[in-house]
């Protein structure tokens, strides 16, 4: 049996009295694309941040290539993070840097590459996501939301990482631009052969990007399966979520009497 690229085992995290993650178990194989769906505030982003070491889990193991990475520090953590690329929900581009410098940031700062060589790679990656070289000289604030997402995607793939995380990649985009981003994600990931973990509540995006889908609810993975099985999951929580129904086992606080 091959070692999964990324494995979360019993990962738990609470903030104050609120349990956000309550023993998450999830595996991602090499080159596999897993999409985690779930409502707002169910712990999706916290799960990603735990893997990236931005939040320290209370318990559980996070294994990358079979090695536990919880609690890594200093250069060991930087080496481990070099395996990752991340597309943030709000793009998180650096305002003070030009677009090409944003894309090349991981190459220059993380890998110590010369600026000239990094610039060439950055412009190539920008071209890969459909942006011309002259966009590279602009600042992020001069771009539309869709263009910012593309730049963020170019930055996420610039270092050719082994694992890429996509945090709500289509949030705030119109349906056409969302589909363009989905296509770019699928193409870029296929080219790189990277393993990916995407969190979203956009079902169209999930169906397009995923090999496997998992649903998170109240800090647990309550269902996991191939994307073709999602419509016949037999899980009432999943059914309610994918059809976007207000009635069902998932209750919102505002609906409580």
């Amino acid at each position: 049996m091959t070692t999964p690229k990324l494995k979360l085992h019993g990962v738990a995290k609470h903030f104050g009295h609120k349990k956000v993650l309550d023993g998450i178990d999830l595996e991602i194989g090499r080159g596999e694309s897993v999409v985690v769906i779930g409502g707002s505030g169910t712990g999706k982003s916290v799960m990603l941040k735990c893997v990236l070491g931005l939040i320290h889990p209370d318990r559980g193991k996070i294994l990358v290539d079979g090695e536990n990475v919880v609690g890594l520090r200093g250069s060991a953590k930087e080496e481990y993070l070099a395996k990752f690329g991340m597309l943030f929900q709000g793009s998180a581009l650096f305002d003070s840097l030009r677009v090409w410098e944003n894309v090349a940031f991981g190459l220059i700062q993380g890998r110590g590459m010369k600026r000239k060589a990094a610039r060439e790679i950055a412009l190539e990656k920008l071209g890969r996501v459909g942006l011309k070289a002259d966009v590279g000289e602009l600042y992020p604030s001069e771009l539309s939301g869709g263009m910012q997402k593309r730049v963020a995607l170019a930055r996420a793939i610039a270092t050719e990482p082994e694992i890429i995380f996509f945090d709500e990649p289509t949030t705030g985009l119109d349906p056409i631009m969302a589909d363009v981003i989905n296509d770019l994600i699928v193409e870029c990931v296929k080219e790189l052969g990277a393993s990916t973990l995407t969190i979203t509540h956009d079902m169209a995006s999930a169906r397009k990007i995923a090999d496997r889908l998992a649903m998170i609810y109240k800090g647990h993975i309550i269902w996991c399966g191939h994307k073709d099985q999602i419509d016949n999951s037999g899980n009432p929580y999943v059914d309610q979520f994918i059809h976007g129904r207000a009635e069902g086992p998932i209750t919102m606080d505002v609906l409580k009497p």
């Binding site: 941040k49 070099a82 700062q109 930055r155 270092t159």
Partner: peptide
């Protein structure tokens, strides 16, 4: 602003 727009998290994920 960098903190609330996740730019500081982005720095960390870029091994910086």
């Amino acid at each position: 602003t960098m903190r609330v727009t996740e730019q500081i998290d982005a720095l960390t994920t870029l091994s910086t």
